[in-house]
Amino acid sequence: MTINLDELEAVARAATPGPWLAIPSRRERGAYEILGVAPVVRTSTPTMLHIAAFDPPTVLALIAELRRARECIEKVRGWWMSDQAPTVSYKQYLGLNAILATYDQEGAS
């Protein structure tokens, strides 16, 4: 799965700012409503709790953390490919290359 951070960030910034709170609905038995969002949204408990947990500040913090992690990986990659990398065993070499290859296949976007 490729995650488009720019798109997610734009959606989070355009949304009603959090924090959001899921509360039991007074209108519908078994439904929940989110406070902090207009209009009020009603849906099932797991969906509502999920929506409330991923308010814009939370999504923006996750995006920032992921971007920092990606930067770190790219710095390690640059260091690893440079003349500054230390002499390592063949096993260590294969291990780091495997980690970077996994990142390239699963996480880069």
Rank of each mutant, 00 (worst) to 15 (best):
L49T: 02
L62F: 02
V88Y: 00
P24S: 06
R68S: 08
P39R: 01
I99A: 11
E74K: 10
L94N: 13
V76L: 13
E7V: 09
A64R: 12
R29V: 09
W20A: 03
N4D: 15
D104I: 02
D104R: 11
L62W: 03
V40D: 07
L35K: 14
A15T: 04
Q84E: 15
P24L: 02
T47C: 10
L66Y: 10
A61Y: 00
W79K: 05
P17Y: 06
Q92G: 02
A38Y: 11
A38D: 15
E7G: 00
G18F: 01
P17K: 07
E65R: 15
T2M: 05
V40S: 14
A53T: 08
D83I: 06
G95V: 05
I51K: 10
V37F: 01
L60T: 04
G95N: 13
H50G: 15
Q92N: 09
A69R: 15
S109Q: 13
E71R: 14
P17W: 05
N4R: 12
P24T: 02
P86E: 03
R13S: 04
C72W: 14
A64H: 08
Q105M: 12
W20L: 03
V59D: 00
L66H: 09
A31E: 05
E106F: 12
R27E: 13
G36W: 03
T87K: 10
P17V: 08
L100G: 03
V59L: 01
M81N: 15
Q105C: 01
T2E: 13
T16A: 15
A85F: 07
A61M: 05
A101F: 09
K75E: 15
G95H: 10
E7Q: 14
N97M: 08
H50C: 12
G107K: 06
Y93R: 15
Q84C: 04
A98Y: 09
L8R: 00
S109D: 13
P56Y: 03
D104N: 10
E106Q: 14
S109W: 07
D104W: 07
A38Q: 13
T45D: 11
T2G: 05
A108I: 12
A85S: 15
T43C: 10
L66W: 06
L62M: 10
V88Q: 02
L8I: 04
A53E: 10
R13Y: 05
D55H: 12
R77G: 05
I3W: 12
T87L: 11
M81Q: 15
A31P: 01
A53L: 04
I51E: 08
A61E: 11
R67C: 05
I23Y: 07
A101L: 11
V40N: 06
R70W: 11
R27N: 10
S82C: 08
V88F: 00
A12E: 01
L66D: 09
G36Y: 02
L8P: 02
Q92H: 11
I99D: 07
T102W: 13
T16Q: 11
V76T: 06
L35W: 07
M81I: 04
S82F: 06
M48K: 00
L66N: 09
A64Q: 08
D55M: 00
L62G: 03
P17N: 06
A12T: 02
E106W: 12
